[in-house]
Design a protein around this nucleic acid. Structure first.
Lengths: 258, 258
DNA sequence: GAGTGGTCTAGACCACGCC
DNA sequence: GCGTGGTCTAGACCACTCA
């Protein structure tokens, strides 16, 4: 038993298992030995083994299922979100459903809430609202193959969205961009921000996020041709299922124009 | 003591503290009561309290300092990485240093390794390499105010980069894009991917990532005018310090052309 | 040296999955 | 009912910080 405390015992156990997992001795989906077995094998208390397993869970390598065992975490298929949704196709604006259909997946959405509220300060700031101005909020849950995978909240200044289809609890043809255009708004550009953090307990529950998995936060501000913000979308998704993709032109000004 | 087990006691303690923190009863940087104090206050064992604290650490709300105490985590200033580095300015290509200077920060880099290697399969794939083709790799550590904040590894097909400045251990004027242009390569576009995961222990150490903080992974593939990949950059950074930013034009084809 | 968190043990009971 | 992980306790010793 090479288990002695230069580093703590549970860390050594974790390292041992981590090595075995990355070396492929335990394959994804496969069960690790039970905690009691490991305790016996290493001559340690089960509490110590449990702590080692917890460590691996936090690293996203292992999931534990109560009453069943601990398993090497399986990779879930990754969805690539391309920024194409800002590019209008021949048949209109891409939507969640249409984009996923291209990958052979069935996307759907559930509208959780549509209402007029006082905006969170972050949103008010991004929309450049005056004090006291309200917003229409549309809270949606996006699903793939009927599994909830993304929370997406959109905000529109009440000034332009109240009493329009944006404020009604129904899907909108061509999505947000379609609706905005029908209001006579000429779209200019979008600013996107991508960041990551750990999920709140709420998010973890709603999106069934495995332990040790962060979320990607995706915020998009849509501007009209005059550079006025007209919409903010703030989405949260499990980071083990999504990747954001952007294609950008490289302006080699120096190579040609200059 | 409203501590009874509908949910586990440690979770109730965690919830209690979480609520107090988000309500501002404990401010960022402020110490929580010691574990012994909390144990006494709730009539629980210290082990149980410790588990509650661990929970909050995993959520990124709290940091613990051995021998000192547990503290509400302070927000670190967020650096926004704009995708402007693909747009050449009047004075050449933006670099890490020049971009940060615009925000009034001093950026520097340390070149950790420059060598010719067999590429990881992911890189080989993205570069479209033949079997057995090698790459030049430049591993850099990027710093802000002399603090390591980002690991950035760049890969170039040895076919085009061997025996060039890309393969030498020195900084390159105008960064990667500058060097590629000097090789006569006409840049076309880049594909970027942003994802997130938990750090490996190595990364956590090198980047001094606080417990409970994920990393953002940023992969950029640079293509020439003919759509051939000429470079891959793969970076990892603490997600509590960085946000990726993109500005994209909204092509309202329907509004005008159709 | 006092106080704090880090770890560990031995033992216990509970909750869940499954046969 | 058996085996699994989930939680909890009482008590102990260690390692670190700071006065």
């Amino acid at each position: 038993m090479g288990i002695t405390p230069p580093r703590s015992r549970y860390q050594q156990v974790a390292e041992h298992l981590r090595r075995a997992i990355t070396a492929g001795e335990y394959r994804p989906g496969q069960a690790l030995p039970s905690e009691s077995q490991l305790a016996q094998q290493f001559g340690l208390n089960r509490t110590t083994i449990n702590k080692a397993i917890r460590q691996l869970v936090a690293e996203g390598l292992v999931v534990v299922e109560h009453g069943r065992g601990s398993y090497v975490r399986e990779q879930r298929p990754v969805i690539h979100i391309s920024a194409d949704y800002v590019t209008r196709g021949a048949d209109g604006w891409p939507t969640w459903t249409s984009e996923l259909a291209r990958e052979g997946l069935s996307g759907s959405q559930r509208i959780r809430e549509v209402s007029v509220i006082d905006p969170p300060t972050e949103i008010a700031g991004r929309l450049g609202l005056e004090d006291g101005e309200q917003v229409v909020v549309r809270r949606r849950l996006l699903l793939i193959e009927d599994e909830p995978v993304q929370l997406a909240d959109s905000y529109y200044p009440a000034r332009i969205a109240a009493d329009t289809e944006l404020a009604r609890r129904a899907k909108m043809r061509g999505g947000e961009n379609g609706a905005l255009e029908r209001l006579g708004i000429q779209l200019g550009f979008v600013d996107e921000e991508v960041s990551a953090r750990m999920p709140t307990p709420d998010e973890a529950g709603l999106l069934k996020i495995p332990q040790g998995t962060p979320v990607l936060r995706h915020v998009r501000v849509t501007y009209d041709r005059d550079g006025r913000p007209v919409a903010v979308m703030a989405a949260v998704m499990a980071a083990d299922r999504f990747t954001m993709r952007y294609r950008l032109p490289t302006s080699t000004g120096g190579g040609e124009q200059e």
